[in-house]
């Protein structure tokens, strides 16, 4: 795990930076629901994309792994959307 982390530190740093930026933007736009829905879509899409690119660079991208990241992207979207729909 540590080896993998050291090898792909740039990709993990990108993911961490993205998470921090998204967290900050969520806080800043917490009263603007349209922006929040947009950020939710961006967040889900970006995570799926990150996973696919990361595995492609690792040379172990398969259809199943791509599907896994896309499904987790959807899960993230629905987790946020169900709350956003009623705030």
């Amino acid at each position: 795990m540590k080896e993998d982390f050291d090898k792909h530190i740039t990709e993990y740093a990108v993911l961490l930076m993205f998470a921090l930026v998204m967290g900050t933007m969520f806080y800043y736009f917490r009263y603007n629901h349209q922006v929040l829905v947009f950020l939710t879509v961006v967040c889900s899409f970006a995570y799926a994309l990150w996973g696919i690119i990361h595995h492609k660079l690792e040379g172990r991208l398969t259809k199943l792994i791509a599907a896994e990241y896309i499904l987790f992207g959807f899960l993230v979207f629905f987790l946020l959307y169900i709350v956003l729909n009623f705030v």
Partner: peptide
């Protein structure tokens, strides 16, 4: 990590 971030955002950031 992503799920933790999402749950934290839901509970501590999103307000009605």
């Amino acid at each position: 990590g992503v799920l933790l971030l999402v749950i934290a955002s839901i509970w501590f950031v999103l307000t009605p």
